[in-house]
Design a binder for these strands. Structure first.
Length: 424
RNA sequence: GUGGCCGUAGCUCAGCUGGUAGAGCCCCUGACUGUGACUCAGGUUGUCGCGAGUUCAAGCCUCGUCGGCCACCCCA
């Protein structure tokens, strides 16, 4: 029988890695809490139509990367390829967008059928933040400050660069798209294949092209800033002033477009040069028309999502992890000989009652003195209690697990007192 | 989806021009030290990713397939 293995691009996170994830998740929860954002949870599966209407019918994500299937009723469902659509749907459906503002966040798996690569997987985890009901630049600034704060807390600040751009209003975008298309049509034969295909479907994406010839042509193309309405341009200025005011450095990149159709106004991207081709760690922008487009109220929205695997990779590769991160045991209880098993269980229970925070590992599975002590050291525990004997009640020895550790005999009643002092 | 490299014990890898599998680490047992050690003695582990083909014979050649890495692409 062939072994069954995990689906391609869907990873197991093993015990030696979960502490890193927990550290990242905890840091994020604390951050979001400190900014008074609320968590929202919504399903992994939605109607396919939701993603088609929000992300855009002709985007790569919808065209060739979604996990889409029919359920038993014949409805077309899809695994969520990103979080914003579901978040907007849920908020709208439950009246969260009616005459009020919301600051929300979510965390969870997303699914995209891409060819796996370092930092790119078919099931990957995102943490996303969405703010609704605020058309002003202050919330945009706050989101950038918040994300910047996260890099600081994780010790990754020096490895991340912020790029921003202004797409203008939806109307600005259409007008610019027309102008750009008109210009590029004159040079159609020189454009690379992808860009030719995008001419009709998604002109703005051509700005992202890495093809040198295409880039050369783009130098003479109409410029996005020339098509942006006055109010939108002014907002973009205001945001930049705010960023300067709080000391966040950034680069304005007029070619930054984003692959999802719902963006307008501000778009931004935090990138790193430490992860090879998967440079984008966090990105987002404003999407004012989205909730209306999904049939709901016309509520302004702005948000971002970050790739958690990419942050885990950064933390690991750059060694930006707290020292005690792998440690999950404080006290190791060695049980040598079958006579003291019950005594050991009672003792563990007593200790856990007196010191509820203490992480107590009671040895199971037998083994002689030597190997148990070895495991005690390997566990990362700070000290070990040793129960040894063939009788039901043994004296208890304590061994402090450092280089010069001594073994001391403790009387049974004093164990908890001793531990309380030792662990403070 | 396209291209390149790769896939041998739990881990890191070796395996000569094809001849029926090895090392180190880890783990376990015993001896010696009242003891995480050292040293010594011994022990467990693999359908060589999977399937087919060529051959008297394949881990080593051919094809397919699955998986990994990297780039393109895409994006978080």
């Amino acid at each position: 029988m062939a072994k069954i293995q995990a689906i391609r691009g869907m990873n197991d996170v093993l015990p030696d890695q979960t502490p890193v994830w927990q550290y990242l998740e905890l840091t994020m929860r604390e951050l979001l809490s400190a900014y008074a954002y609320s968590e929202i949870r919504f399903p992994v599966v939605e109607q396919t139509q939701l993603f088609k209407r929000s992300i855009g019918e002709v985007t790569d994500i919808v065209e060739k990367e979604m996990y889409t299937f029919e359920d038993r009723n014949g409805d077309s469902l899809s695994l969520r390829p990103e979080g914003t659509a579901g978040c907007v749907r849920a908020a709208e459906q439950h009246g969260l967008l009616y005459n009020q503002t919301q600051k929300l966040w979510y965390m969870g798996p997303m699914y995209r059928h891409e060819r796996p690569q370092k930092g790119r997987y078919r099931q990957f985890y995102q943490m996303g933040v969405e703010a609704f009901g605020m058309p002003s630049t202050d919330i945009e600034a706050e989101l950038l400050i918040l994300s910047n704060d996260l890099w600081q807390r994780l010790g990754l600040g020096e490895f991340l660069t912020l790029e921003i751009n202004n797409l203008g209003t939806a109307e600005d975008r259409v007008q610019y798209g027309n102008a750009l298309r008109g210009y590029l049509l004159e040079h159609k034969d020189i454009l690379d294949e992808d860009s030719q295909r995008r001419l009709e479907k998604n002109v703005l994406r051509i700005l992202d092209s890495k093809n040198p010839d295409t880039q050369e042509i783009l130098k003479g193309a109409p410029k996005l800033p020339d098509f942006i309405s006055e109010a939108s341009a002014k907002d973009f200025e205001t945001l930049q002033t705010a960023l300067k005011g709080v000391g966040i450095s950034y680069i304005v990149n007029f070619g930054l477009v984003r692959g999802l159709d719902y963006y307008n106004g501000l778009v931004f991207e935090w990138t790193t040069d430490q992860l090879g081709a998967q440079a984008a760690v966090c990105s987002g922008g404003r999407y004012n028309g989205l909730s209306k487009q999904l049939g709901g109220t016309d509520t302004p929205g702005v948000g971002f999502a970050l790739g958690m695997e990419r942050l885990v990779l950064l933390l690991e590769e750059l060694g930006r992890l707290p020292e005690e991160i792998g440690r999950c045991v404080d006290l190791y209880i060695a049980v040598v000989g079958s006579g003291v098993q019950i005594q050991a269980m009672k003792l563990s229970a007593d200790i856990r009652r007196v010191l509820p925070e203490l992480r107590v590992l009671t040895h199971c599975g037998g083994g002689k003195y030597n190997s148990q002590l070895k495991k005690a050291f390997a566990s990362g525990a700070r000290c070990a209690l040793i129960l040894e004997g063939d009788e039901e009640l043994a004296e208890i020895k304590v061994r402090i697990l450092d280089d010069a550790g001594e073994t001391t005999v403790l009387g049974t009643p004093s164990v908890c007192d001793w531990l309380t002092k030792f662990f403070r």
